[in-house]
């Protein structure tokens, strides 16, 4: 059976990847550029929470909103300062992709310099690579994050749903994503909408980075290392649907940890080395089998087909058991 620690990590990572995938999908649907620097917004959150904890002993739950703000502003800066000017100059898609890769490298350099600053000036010897922050409250005999993270993800998803369907701004957002030129004709300030989407995206990443510090170790390249898993979650969700991204994140995060846990109990500890491969395999399979993701699957047909197959199976079992009974 799967060990309990893997159940805990699957709940936590499932929720965190859900949040990150929602943000990544927001940046993709607005600019249509895969944002390889997105992982670094997670690192912004990591370092915000780490610094505030080391300086003022503030728990990451309280520093998460601050991280949300900082991450959001960084994200806006990247969009307005680099990506939008490049796109306006007519850069092709590949150039924009390589620009985001460059921004990610620059971020690692900036975080490295900042961590060194902390190390030399304040003698935080663990600043380049720190262990998880202790001091989470405890619940059900394990840490509070297993409740807080899913709850946050649920609240964010519900909040987004309400924003996008019940408010005028949300409807304008959807319109700007679906058809920017038509939205412009209707007098919607598409640019304002995009800036807001990028703020939300960076904020979500940084906030999940804050939560991340409570559970796992972090360093200057943690976010860059997560980018592949975040992409896997987004792609699984279809790269177009925010709810799909949330579900994709949960599947990737939970699947990675549950499969690893299950694999360890069956094949031994060797499976642990391949853990990070699981989301990649899921992503590659998604891209090859149904590249439009979960959101594109004809769910009604899938459900009826499953019902039909299960009905047949049940019928078969009933007939067999009836025959068996008769024989008795």
């Amino acid at each position: 059976m799967v060990e309990f620690t893997y159940v805990v990590s699957s709940i936590i990572f499932g929720s965190l990847f859900g949040m990150m995938a929602i943000g990544l999908t927001l940046t993709y649907i607005t600019t249509k550029v895969p944002n390889f620097a997105y992982g670094s917004f997670v690192t912004v959150g990591l370092y915000t929470s780490y610094s505030l904890y080391r300086f003022e002993a503030i728990t990451p739950y309280l520093s998460a909103p601050i991280a949300f703000g900082i991450g959001g502003l960084t994200s806006i800066l990247m969009y307005l300062g680099i990506l939008r000017p490049l796109a306006r100059r007519g850069s092709p898609l590949v150039s924009l992709m390589i620009a985001t890769l460059a921004i990610d490298i620059a971020f690692v350099g900036i975080f490295g310099t900042y961590a060194n600053y902390l190390r030399y000036t304040y003698v935080f010897i663990d600043s380049l690579n720190f262990t998880e922050i202790l001091g989470d409250f405890s619940i059900f005999g394990s840490q509070g994050l297993i409740l807080a993270a899913p709850l946050t993800l649920a609240l964010i998803t519900i909040g987004l749903y309400l924003l996008l369907t019940r408010t005028k701004f949300g409807v304008a957002m959807r319109a700007s994503v679906e058809n920017p030129s038509l939205a412009r004709v209707l007098g919607i300030d598409v640019e304002k909408v995009y800036v807001f989407a990028w703020f939300l995206a960076g904020g979500l990443a940084a906030m999940s980075g804050s939560y991340y510090t409570l559970y796992s170790q972090g360093g200057i390249a943690t976010g860059s290392g997560l980018i592949v898993e975040i992409f896997a979650a987004s792609v699984l969700g279809g790269l177009s649907s925010l709810y799909g991204a949330a579900i994709g994140g949960v599947i990737i995060g939970a699947g990675e940890n549950l499969l690893t846990g299950g694999g360890i109990s069956v094949f031994g500890n060797g499976v642990l080395d391949y853990q990070k491969g699981i989301p990649l395999v899921l992503m590659i399979l998604t891209l090859l089998v149904f590249p439009q993701g979960l959101a594109s699957l004809p769910w009604i047909r899938v459900v009826t087909r499953i019902r039909r197959i299960s009905g047949r199976l049940l019928g078969g079992i009933r007939r067999l058991s009836a025959r068996g009974l008769r024989r008795c």
């Binding site: 850069s91 390589i98 900036i110």
Partner: peptide, 24 residues
């Protein structure tokens, strides 16, 4: 605290973005 390795990351990334913007 400025490590040349990290400085290099920032410099080359900036150089790349400048080239993409002004001399694509």
């Amino acid at each position: 605290f400025v490590d040349v390795n990290f400085l290099r990351y920032i410099l080359f990334a900036a150089l790349l973005i400048l080239i993409l913007a002004f001399r694509p």
